[in-house]
Amino acid sequence: MFIQPWDAGLDEAEWQTWIAEGHDFGLLSVNGLSGQAPVAVPTHFTSETGHLLVHLARPNPVWTAIEHDPNVLFTVFGDYAFIPGPWRAKPDTPPTDGVPTSYYTAVQFTCRAHIVDDPEAKAELLRRQMAYFQPDGDHAPISAEQPPYGRMLPGIRGLRLEVTDVRAKFKYDDHKPVEHRTAVADHLTERGQGLDVPTALQQRRRRDRIGPWKP
């Protein structure tokens, strides 16, 4: 992932906060076997100190690839929007001379994958995930010894993704003048399609922290 200096995360807390705000779905990318394309799996995940937790169906073709090479990439992205050219035109130039772009946040985790096959270890992984996704506890006990989860555990495998590196990108034209960023955020809020509003919130948040860009 290419990151311009003005698109870089301002500190670790920035991307950690963004993930914690509910960005819990990403793309697991695994090197393919020799001569084959990489394997990519969209999935929910949860995190704990230094690790991402995932579980997938046992028939998933990703397992062979992970066993061949456990070095994987997990990408989370969101708060994205297409920015039309006229919104980015320089002052005193025709609006049609503006060059369009995309705004987005992306966090990429480089990881070493550890497969979890022990029934009790899988049950514990699921308990951790359910504590996040269903914190009210409105589900049956997750036990390797009793239904319904006990009989279903053989059908899945768990993954503990040991995070070795994190790269965060917040692409919101932060090198442009403050007035420009404010105007684009206003356009996004007015348009209000898709993820326009959360994209505008990210742009305003970064604008307020950075102010005028200083290389």
Rank of each mutant, 00 (worst) to 15 (best):
H114M: 02
A37H: 13
P177Q: 14
V39L: 07
L73E: 08
R181H: 12
D117H: 06
E21C: 14
R151G: 10
K176M: 15
H44T: 13
V116G: 04
Q4W: 02
Q16V: 05
G35M: 05
G192R: 12
N60P: 04
R206H: 11
H139C: 05
D174E: 15
T96K: 10
G98W: 00
L73F: 01
L33D: 05
R58Q: 15
D174V: 05
R205P: 05
R112L: 09
T46W: 03
L73M: 12
R205C: 03
T46Q: 09
A89S: 03
P100A: 10
D136C: 06
Q193M: 04
P147F: 07
K90G: 10
N71W: 02
D186R: 14
F170R: 10
A13R: 09
E48F: 04
F109T: 00
G32W: 00
K171D: 06
M130L: 13
P61E: 04
F25D: 03
W87T: 02
A106K: 07
E12L: 06
H180G: 06
R206C: 10
P100V: 00
R207K: 14
H114R: 07
A20E: 11
D11C: 06
R112A: 06
P212R: 08
Y132H: 10
A37M: 05
S34H: 06
P38S: 06
P94W: 00
A200K: 10
A106Q: 14
K122V: 09
R127I: 05
I3A: 09
H51A: 10
S143M: 15
R167P: 04
K171H: 04
P177L: 14
V54D: 00
K214M: 10
H187P: 02
G32S: 09
E162R: 07
W63F: 11
T199F: 14
L28W: 00
V107I: 12
S143Y: 08
F2Y: 10
D174Y: 00
V197I: 15
Y149P: 07
G26L: 01
Q4F: 07
L125T: 04
A131F: 13
P147N: 04
G32H: 00
G211V: 10
E162F: 09
P135D: 12
R112D: 15
V72Y: 00
P70D: 01
D11H: 09
F45Y: 14
H55S: 05
P215W: 01
D24F: 04
R191F: 04
D118H: 08
V99H: 11
A57R: 04
L188M: 11
Q146R: 14
D117W: 02
Y149K: 07
D118A: 15
G9M: 02
K171V: 08
H51F: 11
